[in-house]
């Protein structure tokens, strides 16, 4: 897959993530989780804008976002909202890794670090908590 094709793929995933975080923010409790959702949404918007510029620089026209995205399962409460956030970040981590692989060396490190940010959010939203806290 070329850098352009990968960038378009990531852009689609990013647009979906922005939409998804709107759903997530509406379902998670106010406070730190909602703040995290809105912060993530803003971060993905920044990535979206950069991706659109990148696609343009690669000689193509960025595709427009869909008006709406259908979540793969009903988002009816905080738990399903967190599951959705986990899913979109997990997918995006892989997509950014694919873009990194297709990128030039100069862009690759930056794309790799972006993938890492998504992967870290997978941990956050999946509710990873310790079973080894008693050891500390």
């Amino acid at each position: 897959m070329s850098e352009l094709e990968s960038a378009v793929l990531v852009l689609g995933g990013t647009e979906a993530a922005i939409y998804a975080y709107g759903l997530v923010a509406a379902r998670v409790p106010s406070g730190s989780q909602r703040s995290s959702a809105l912060s993530a949404m803003a971060w993905h918007r920044t990535q979206r804008d950069a991706l659109r510029a990148r696609i343009t620089a690669l000689g193509s026209t960025p595709p427009a976002a869909a008006a709406a995205y259908a979540p793969p399962f009903p988002v009816t409460d905080a738990a399903s909202a967190r599951r959705l956030a986990t899913l979109v970040e997990d997918r995006l981590a892989g997509q950014w890794a694919g873009l990194a692989a297709a990128s030039t060396a100069a862009a690759r490190t930056r794309d790799a670090l972006t993938a890492q940010t998504c992967a870290t959010r997978v941990v956050t939203w999946s509710g990873a908590a310790p079973v080894w806290n008693g050891a500390l």
Partner: peptide
């Protein structure tokens, strides 16, 4: 390159998970 990038994402996720434990 893709494998190495994924190794990095895994390392970042592991660090986050282990930090949560800490």
């Amino acid at each position: 390159a893709r494998v190495i990038v994924l190794a990095g994402t895994g390392a970042a996720a592991a660090a986050a998970a282990l930090s949560a434990g800490r």
